[in-house]
């Protein structure tokens, strides 16, 4: 017989478990090649600042044979996203990658790295530099980005989407569901800033 005492304690946690966590990143001293990839940032170099302590540490280490900093952007002095796969595939198998930028960017790059034959254990994601999200509309499948508030207007169907914390690594996006499908009065007057 099950009694109330046997029942597990319910602790309510509103957090959705598919939302990525970004625990502190430390340098993998065994890597043959330390690869630092940052998104070129127009509003200050937050991504670079996140990577700097790790790069400093790598430079002091005697084991690391190679330190490769890559800045991804559109200007002439940086590498473009479309050039990245070729660069990545030329790296030694025993490389470690450290990625910093917006959340969509770091997951996009992680995908390219895995497609080049590396495994996710070699990829270290620094916390996203801001609250910008990529949003997948569950009704028309269109992508809207960057999204910083909820609800957000879908770029495809124009519906007002509640931005949920449910994240897909395949789409590198959060899911959005129409907020006022049950009643148009459910549309809040003001949108809420995402964290």
């Amino acid at each position: 017989m099950q009694t109330n005492a046997d029942k597990p304690e319910l602790t309510l946690n509103p957090g959705v478990k598919s939302r990525p966590q970004y625990p502190p990143v430390s340098l993998n001293p065994a890597a043959q090649c330390q690869v630092f990839i940052a998104r070129k940032n127009t509003t200050g170099d937050k991504a670079g600042a996140l990577l700097k302590p790790l790069m400093d540490e790598a430079e002091k280490s005697e084991k690391s044979l190679n330190i490769i900093p890559l800045v991804v952007g559109e200007d002439g002095d940086v590498i473009s996203m479309s050039q990245l796969p070729q660069t990545i595939s030329s790296l030694p198998l025993a490389s470690s990658f450290y990625l910093a930028g917006t959340e969509a960017f770091i997951w996009d790059v992680a995908k390219l790295i895995c497609e080049a034959g590396f495994i996710m254990e070699q990829v270290h994601l620094l916390p996203p530099v801001n609250n910008e999200r990529r949003l997948f509309c569950t009704h028309c499948y269109a992508i809207t980005e960057p999204v910083t508030h909820s609800p957000a207007v879908c770029s495809g169907c124009g519906r007002h989407l509640l931005v949920r914390d449910h994240f897909s690594k395949i789409h590198r996006a959060y899911v959005g569901v129409q907020i006022d499908a049950e009643d148009p009065a459910d549309l809040p007057e003001e949108s809420e800033e995402l964290c």
């Binding site: 602790t11 959705v16 478990k17 598919s18 569950t138 949920r164 449910h166 994240f167 897909s168 899911v175």
Partner: peptide
């Protein structure tokens, strides 16, 4: 379409209480 490719715990992400 959205949950495609997810791991077991990822696609159950939105289920309340059960993870804990």
């Amino acid at each position: 379409a959205f949950d495609a490719g997810m791991s077991f715990k990822e696609w159950h992400g939105p289920v309340p209480m059960a993870h804990e």
